[in-house]
Design a protein around this nucleic acid. Sequence first.
DNA 1: GCTTGCTATGAAACGAGTTTCATAGTTTAA
DNA 2: TTAAACTATGAAACTCGTTTCATAGCAAGC
Lengths: 307, 307
Amino acid sequence: MANIRDIAKLTGYSVTTISRVINNHPYVDEKKRQKVLKVIDELNYTPNRTAQNLSYGKTHNLAVILPFVNHPFYSQLLNGILEAAFSRQYKVSLLPTNYDTKLEHQYLEDFAAKSFDGLIVTTRSNHLDDFIPYFQYGPIIFCEETPDGKAPYAAIDLKGSLSESLTYLKEQGIQRLGLTLGRSKRISRNSKLTIQLSREYFPEFDEKNIFWDCCIGEDGVKAAAFFEERGVDGIIAIGDEISAVLLQHWTSSKKPLIIGREDLLISEIMGFSTINHHLKDCGQAAFQLFYENSQEQIKIPYEFIPR
Amino acid sequence: MANIRDIAKLTGYSVTTISRVINNHPYVDEKKRQKVLKVIDELNYTPNRTAQNLSYGKTHNLAVILPFVNHPFYSQLLNGILEAAFSRQYKVSLLPTNYDTKLEHQYLEDFAAKSFDGLIVTTRSNHLDDFIPYFQYGPIIFCEETPDGKAPYAAIDLKGSLSESLTYLKEQGIQRLGLTLGRSKRISRNSKLTIQLSREYFPEFDEKNIFWDCCIGEDGVKAAAFFEERGVDGIIAIGDEISAVLLQHWTSSKKPLIIGREDLLISEIMGFSTINHHLKDCGQAAFQLFYENSQEQIKIPYEFIPR
DNA sequence: GCTTGCTATGAAACGAGTTTCATAGTTTAA
DNA sequence: TTAAACTATGAAACTCGTTTCATAGCAAGC
């Protein structure tokens, strides 16, 4: 495979001149430029991107840390990031953690090795403080709220959407509220917020009405039995698929009022309320923060869809 | 940011020795090794990945060309690729084309610039022949069948699954078969195959019973009206979401027998037949072909799920 | 007529690593 | 005892681009 020195030799000009032609610098004699282009074409030469990156000290590569891809939440978010990134000529690498803190740490080391110009962390597995030493290597943007202005983020407005959901359930006369939440070990900030708000809007809310470790659709089967047993009549679920399975497996006649969180097609078909968190916008905003090396903290407006 | 020559100066050893320590080469005096490691730690030094890549002539980067990510087909496939890639220390870049042939071509030029060690093409937008000149830059693996042994692939067994679907519909006494297919402009090979097989199994199959340009869930609304109008009683749809919407909007009492293609949760909930094409396996196989630089052509076994 | 300023060019340094090769001291084997 | 083999080390070349700097021809300005 030819390199720039081959082109220089074949044309009889210097490497500098070839570089100038490649980069459309002025100050190259038109005849020489033409000859260089001709030889480049003949030899089918393409400048080596890695060498260029080394020179520039930039990779034009952005990495996205996420637990996994095959979940609507992440694929929608990713979609927004990709769209924004490619419109700015950035390539996007995926770094799936599966919530493995060691793996995530390894990715941070990759970042320190200048593999990427920036990092978008959709969901982090390590503590925020573990990220701080890596801020020196380039912008790190989060897609979750960070406590007190420590790091830039573009996040969904979970507090807003939950408040509206709870208000709605109250207006609809719900008596006994139930929640499905994720991991019961290492409870997420989002779970804590959900519980806290539930208590605010439903002072009589009983924490025994929380169905924990509800992660994939199938978990809805057990959740249905659980909530029926406990006489729950209104549920805020962690996802639309779970909501769907839950409703499907509800045996007694009176179905509960359920609110999903993803605005998937299934929520429309089964007719339950949901929230569109505008994840694509969130992804685009996250990229923009990276691109502008901004320290801003942005909450994306959501849309509550009552049904 | 420190580089290898800084470490060399500070320790008083040569750059070569530092490099040997970094790469765990033998032939380094244990005391010196310890001192080097100490200085590396003090300076918080990490070898620059781009420089290493330039030296090695490899990037340990794999790219995946795909139309978009937020579709179950691609996110499942991607999931398999990612899992396999990360177990082999490869990073994965996403190259979304949105079916834009020019953009895809640009990605091929990136490949020629040695941005990536290999390319997995899930769905191509350009003609296969346009890819051939790029084979010289590294393995290009397809996730679609290629005509006559021209290129390696790991693809779903569409012919098998369609045949089984058609057999099933015949056994169930279907009289008038309908199809939903994708783009009517630039008809895909898959669409052609679907039509061809439909004719084989249903000699009386009428091409007027094809609902074209059926791409997203919502298209199912129109599809339902279309098929009802034409008195269709069995449908092979291009996806599960479309199947769901179609069934949902079917107004007359007797619902058609419908077969989806993705084994999404919704197919179980609504109780229609579907096919699990084992896309994750497909993605893993594709990576393996890249990794072994194999020319093999693999079809992934599918599972037909009658309901 | 002399100083600027612009066009045009290339040698060499730079980015940050790896690898080859030469050298030399020690062991080991015959 | 001597040749071969192994350990240990570093200078310099190499990967492949970009950029700086020096040089020089030529035209415009005063």
